[in-house]
Design a protein around this nucleic acid. Structure first.
Length: 294
DNA sequence: TGCCCCCTGCAG
DNA sequence: CTGCAGGGGGCA
């Protein structure tokens, strides 16, 4: 579920709440969600929380790191007391889960519970069970490529992310639709299905356009669009299409500001043309046929 | 480079 | 019932 802005939102939130806390017990409710030696977690403090691509990492005081990938439906929710403290707030638009529905899902899909010495808990929920938590030696993180098989591309919000780098990485997929190429984590780290569609819109590029046909001006626009859309995602606390909530159980509001994602048949915010939905690389893809030229 | 798969639940 | 969902890995 979460892409870079969602994982980053969780990182910042968790960082404030659990840095310095000591883990006193770990309850694994679904064995497939955890890899590693569980007992090495207990008795150790969380000293630092980081993100690499869509992977979230907690460095522990014993030189091990607990890393998570939330995949499509993972959540990390920290609660002070014994009860699941999902805040009741106004439900968003039609078709989205209410807070009550979310809370029921939370309980049902909890896979791991971490308990801390101050009585608080961290719930790792994952409806679809695609996500994982692993405990690895901190010094092995690079060697195991942060738990991923794919080469991890540049972090788009770092200074190192240049237009030339984006162009060169994309050009390894000359014949691919640009939006599909953006989902390759070795091209740019952290972009997923929502922000790929949004970045193509901001750059004015039709998502089906082949990479090799992009002009230099389009690489320049796309580079800036990626940065802008991810920053906006973070600014609005991420996208809550379905299950995403932050570490406090709160939904993000980016989709209230999105130009195309999940806006099929709605009017383009720029030109009023009806937004279209298509399928590229097996994934739902939204675009404005007027603003985004082939 | 595409396609299918992992799994659960919801909308149509 | 079928199709679809913020991801990524394995396989032709």
């Amino acid at each position: 579920m979460p892409e870079l802005p969602e994982v980053e939102t969780i990182r910042v939130g968790l960082s404030k709440k659990i840095t310095g806390l000591k883990i006193i017990s770990v309850e694994i409710l679904n064995s497939g969600s955890f890899q590693g030696e569980k007992s090495y977690l207990v008795g150790n403090k969380i000293i630092h929380i980081w993100r690499k691509a869509k992977v979230l990492g907690l460095d522990l005081s014993n030189s091990y790191s607990l890393i998570f990938h939330l995949k499509m439906s993972g959540q990390l929710i920290w609660v002070k007391k014994a009860r699941l403290g999902v805040k009741r707030e106004e439900r968003s638009g039609g078709g989205h889960p209410t807070q009550d529905m979310l809370q029921r899902m939370l309980i049902k899909s909890t896979r791991i519970i971490f308990r801390f010495s101050d009585g608080s808990k961290l719930f790792f929920n994952d409806q679809r069970k695609f996500g994982w938590a692993k405990l690895v030696k901190t010094s092995d993180l690079k060697k195991i490529n942060y738990g991923l098989k794919t080469v991890i591309g540049p972090e788009p919000l770092s200074k190192n992310f240049t237009i030339a780098q984006l162009r060169d990485n994309l050009m390894r997929h000359k014949n691919m639709a640009i939006k599909v190429a953006l989902l390759d984590q070795s091209v740019v780290a952290g972009i997923g299905n929502i922000y790929a569609s949004e970045a193509c819109f901001l750059a004015g590029i039709n998502p089906a356009k082949k990479v090799e046909t992009l002009k230099q001006g389009e690489f320049i626009k796309l580079h800036q669009a990626i940065i802008d859309v991810l920053r906006d995602g973070i600014k609005y606390g991420g996208s809550s299409s379905r299950l995403y909530v932050n570490s406090q159980g709160e939904r993000g509001s980016f989709l209230n500001h999105a130009f195309v994602y999940e806006r099929e048949n709605k009017q383009c915010r720029i030109c009023n043309t009806a937004i279209k939905k298509t399928r590229l690389g097996g994934r739902g893809t939204y675009y404005c046929s007027s603003c985004q030229k082939p």
